[in-house]
Simulated scan of single mutants.
Amino acid sequence: MDRLAGIQEFVAVVDAGGFSAAAQKLHLSRSAVGKAIARLEERLGVRLCHRTTRAFQLTSDGHAFYEHCVRILAELDIAENAMTSDKEQPAGRLRLSVPVIFGRRCVAPVIADIARQYSELRFDVSFTDRPVDLIDESYDLVVRNSALPDSAVLTARRIARQRMTICAAPAYLAARGTPRNIEDIAEHDSIVYGRDGNTRSWVFPNGKGGTYTAPARSRLILDDLEAAADMAVAGMGLAWLPCWLIRERVHSGTLVRVLPDIEPLVFDTFAVWPKAPFMPARLRVLIDALASRLPGMTGADGEIKSAA
């Protein structure tokens, strides 16, 4: 018995969202795909999906089986790539999770270039700031703006550095005054990043290996950094943002840095993926491209620099 029979067809139907699209991708007839999945269901003794001529929907068993199938096919890809990675172009599917703004502004352009270079690569990208479980949610790679905790099942590589800075609109500073030290921040309105009831503190190195927190008074709490930058441009208060995000606004004069001589927090951005004996060529190409390209977007040390 071929225990893999029907699995590729099943995953293709789920990924494509229907039988016709999957059949076209697999270069099979719709009937052949449907029969392969029917035989798979018969062998398993469960219903994997509900389907009509117009609709396709996974059952709860189908959802669980799909996650296992994706991992099985990924392991097969790893084994095959170990034998052929030096002989073939990167190919296959990569499922990624990236932060919303950093992902859109910095990671997405790299993905676009890789996709143009390798026509056999497919990308499934989720833009979210929520914590994700890389293993349970079957991601091939996640990009995260925090250090990787000790893990026996994950591997990480630093791909960028982000330098934080306080900024404000010239009109706001003209009306409210410019802070002369960290303590002055408490007298100002602040635009703060927050999500799910938690806000991000404005943190600075203390010169002794630790950090201290600026006394920011959060008048506006937003879960979108781009919106926070826009609010700062509108004169709504001080904001603590990554230098790469406000670089163009600083160069155009719509924002200015506040307390630029104070040592900023610089934090690392990591690519994280499951540990495996072999790395698929498609994953290695993407990670190498991110590590090569992102420092040019964020600055080698996250600094504000001219785009020229």
Rank of each mutant, 00 (worst) to 15 (best):
L4A: 13
A5L: 10
G6L: 12
G6D: 12
E9F: 08
G18F: 01
S20G: 11
Q24M: 11
L26P: 13
H27W: 06
L28T: 07
G34N: 13
I37V: 13
A38D: 15
R39D: 14
E41R: 05
E41K: 05
R54H: 14
F56N: 02
Y66S: 00
H68G: 02
R71F: 00
L73M: 14
I78V: 12
N81F: 00
S85G: 03
S85L: 07
Q89I: 06
P90Y: 04
P90G: 04
A91R: 15
G92D: 09
L94P: 07
V98W: 01
V98S: 01
R105C: 00
Y118G: 02
S119G: 11
E120W: 09
L121S: 04
S126F: 11
S126C: 12
V132P: 11
V132H: 08
V143H: 03
V143F: 01
N145L: 13
A147M: 10
P149F: 03
P149I: 05
L154D: 06
L154W: 04
T155L: 10
I159E: 07
Q162N: 13
P170E: 07
A174D: 15
R176E: 13
G177A: 09
D184F: 05
E187Y: 04
D189C: 11
Y193L: 12
D196H: 15
P205L: 06
G210V: 03
R217M: 00
R219D: 03
L220C: 00
I221L: 04
I221R: 09
A229M: 14
V233K: 09
W244K: 06
L245I: 07
E248P: 00
E248W: 00
R249W: 01
V250F: 02
H251L: 12
L255A: 02
V256H: 05
R257G: 03
V258A: 01
V258Y: 04
L259E: 05
D261P: 01
E263G: 00
E263R: 15
P264L: 02
L265E: 15
V266C: 08
F267Q: 10
T269W: 00
K275C: 00
F278T: 12
V285L: 10
I287E: 05
D288E: 15
A289W: 08
L290P: 04
R293D: 12
I304C: 03
A307L: 14
A307R: 15
